[in-house]
Design a protein around this nucleic acid. Structure first.
Lengths: 100, 100
DNA sequence: CGTGTAAGGAATTCTGACACG
DNA sequence: CGTGTAAGGAATTCTGACACG
């Protein structure tokens, strides 16, 4: 759950190299609540590999002309999908434990 | 193989927070060839989660009073172990493929 | 040997704003 | 709406060196 993929350790300049997005764009997508970087005590943003993946998805959508508002909805529903999946898996595990 | 664990994206300040080691120590262990950060075009060091794990091991050894030279040998032999393991696994896979 | 520190320079990141459209 | 840019300040990182032991 709290694996390397989700640890916030990448600075914005590196995210720029990884995604090809400008610093302005990366900050703007945060402003539009599409990503959630953490802040160090000093205030610099830190991103996870998961954030980088999301940014890559955002870049694709933007190229198709999709607006940030729509992209946010898409991201949220795909997240809802993951949560549902996790809940179902939990139910399944409980079921099989009972019949083990 | 080239997963998130081995991608060099963490700057030295973040490694310091993750490991508790001083910048001086982190740089010194590189000088002693215990870790291998990459460099950006500008020259700043970038570390992977794998490097962070190695640094944690180094810190433990150092507390026991082990010298960097000895630690390097330990790290190399444990790496040799991993390589051997990978080779064996390759052999096993080949074997079972033949008898599938 | 391993680590601290002061030194000076170069690149990074931050915010708020103006611009274009 | 989405993105570029110039602006000024603050913190980061780098290297080579002196210090202690």
């Amino acid at each position: 759950m709290s694996s390397y993929k989700h640890k916030k350790v990448i600075s914005i300049g590196t995210v720029n190299e990884l995604t090809g997005l400008s610093l302005r764009q990366i900050r703007y997508y945060e402003e539009r609540i599409l990503i959630y970087p953490e802040r160090t005590k000093r205030g610099t943003r830190k991103y996870s590999f998961s954030d980088v993946e999301t940014l890559l998805q955002i870049a694709d959508k933007r190229e198709e002309g999709v607006q940030t508002y729509e992209i946010r909805k898409d991201l949220q529903s795909s997240n809802k999908g993951k949560v549902m999946e996790r809940m179902l898996r939990g139910q399944l595990n409980a079921h099989f434990r009972m019949n083990k």
